[in-house]
């Protein structure tokens, strides 16, 4: 019986103490973690649309849309987050497009777990620059060969799946964005 008591007391106490320690540490850095995420989004927005003077957040359903405004508080661009399955895990991108959703300002990859040296190259300028000022009046296509049409994006060599994931996720989000913008206006 004494054994049973000792067992119970020790494990319970260890668990309780560890829980205390952890919640303490967590509380100490919670602010920082949130600030990091906000800062990352802010940086990405600034990078893609430097002309914008202010940002207005609009919630539509579960999504947050960012209205980018000039000095006169007129809408000049939309910023929105796209999330989709990549090769390893989900890819999270920030997309900035003109207010008519006809042309992209550009995209930034916020989070991805793609293979370093291969799929991870979707974060690099070489790949992302293809999306700068890209015409999105038609859905984009991902090709392994050199670009022959306006709506094509060239995939990264040996990282076709990751490249395709970016393009497909983008297309889907733009579609849903069009619907959401309609409901706004």
């Amino acid at each position: 019986m004494k054994d049973a008591v000792k067992i119970t007391v020790v494990l319970t106490f260890v668990c309780a103490f560890c829980a205390f320690l952890l919640s303490f540490v967590n509380g100490a850095v919670e602010e920082r973690v949130k600030a990091n995420q906000v800062a990352q989004l802010q940086d990405a927005l600034n990078k893609l649309s430097p002309k914008a003077q202010s940002v207005e957040e609009v919630a539509i359903g579960e999504d947050l849309i960012y209205k980018l405004l000039d000095e006169q508080k007129k809408l000049i661009a939309y910023g929105f987050v796209a999330l989709g399955q990549g090769y390893q895990d989900k890819i999270k991108m920030l997309v900035v497009s003109d207010k008519n959703l006809r042309q992209l300002e550009g995209i930034e990859v916020l989070e991805s777990q793609e293979t370093p040296g291969l799929g991870a190259k979707i974060k690099e300028a070489d790949f992302l620059n293809q999306f700068t000022k890209k015409d999105i009046s038609r859905p984009l296509e991902c090709t392994k060969l050199d670009i022959s049409k306006k709506s094509e994006i060239k995939a990264i060599t040996s990282a076709t799946i990751s490249s395709r994931a970016v393009v497909n996720t983008l297309n889907k989000r733009i579609e849903s964005m069009r619907k959401q913008v309609k409901s706004l206006n």
Binding site: D3, A4, I7, T8, V9, V10, L11, T12, F13, V14, C15, A16, C18, A19, F20, L22, S23
Partner: peptide, 17 residues
């Protein structure tokens, strides 16, 4: 947190004992 993990620990401890 303390109560949750403490309770889990307690339950498993009793089981193990």
């Amino acid at each position: 947190a303390v109560l949750t993990l403490g309770l889990i620990g307690f339950t498993f401890a009793v089981l193990l004992a």
